[in-house]
Amino acid sequence: MSTLTPSTTATGDRPRGPRSAPPRPKLRRSSPRRRRRWFGALAVAIAVVWAFPVYWMLNSSFLPFNRIRSPEPTFFPVGGTVAAYERVFESNFLSALRVSATVTLITVAAALLFAFLAALALSRFRFRGRRSFLLAVLIIQMIPAEGLFISQFKLLEGWQLLNSVVGLSLLYVAAVVPFTIWMLRGFVNGVPRELEEAALVDGCSRVQAFFRITLPLLAPGLVASGVYAFLQAWNEFTLALVVMTRPDNMTLPLWLKTFTEANRASDWAGIMAGSVVIAIPVMIFFLFVQHRMTSGLVSGAVKG
């Protein structure tokens, strides 16, 4: 868990040797600098290509009708308009936003709580069945919604939970919890048990030690897992499609699909504005926690 170990902590003696700091060997000064520059240009070019769809979404969303439907594409929204955004808010966007927000909130809260408890048990205790449970979690995590949604549909139908926020949240929590357990367990493992034990020796109760020592150290892990759950629930499409069959219960992704189908022939600016409105908050969120997301996702693979 490289995220948790501060790289420059006091380890008693201060680093003396010159080799402790420089990360890259300076030996290959001989290799031509021009090649490096060429690679740099290539990297920038690829970045532009990769980011282009995102830029195009923004650009198109500001264009008026006559410029979006013209034989020559407009590459910069100079003199653009926000009329497309007004058309988005005139549709039933807000009702979809409400559904999505509720489902996401329930999912994040429940998944975090349940997974946190489970991660504590798995990381801090040795008990019979622990190893099997971990393996089961790993395998369950891989069960694809696409292989199970038929009977999940029947299940919710039987419980009168079709088209309900609760029903969809239940499926989301179950979908998110295994990975969240796995991720949080890694973070809990990263908090040295000795810290807790030191606190116990110093007279803390077990509960105090947990709240004063362990929990604060786990905050990054909780944030990362919470964001993961948030992104999953906010962006999920398949299960929402299966469960939310009525138009007034659409989540945002379903709304975007319906909105696109309704306006494909006439209003691409409006459709792009809808995409922007859905994407931008998620992207900002994602960019803020990206580093933790990556290290969390990779932590199963790379031992820090």
Binding site: G40, L42, A47, W50, R264, A279, L287, Q290
Partner: peptide, 30 residues
């Protein structure tokens, strides 16, 4: 590559990664 181009590339990739699937699909249709 050097830091500048690497960061540029990482930001470009991140933008794509962060896009919600439905929004990406809609943009690609366009």
């Amino acid at each position: 590559t050097g830091t500048g181009p690497r960061l540029t590339l990482q930001i470009g990739l991140l933008l794509a990664w962060a896009m919600p699937h439905l929004a990406s699909l809609t943009v690609w249709q366009w």
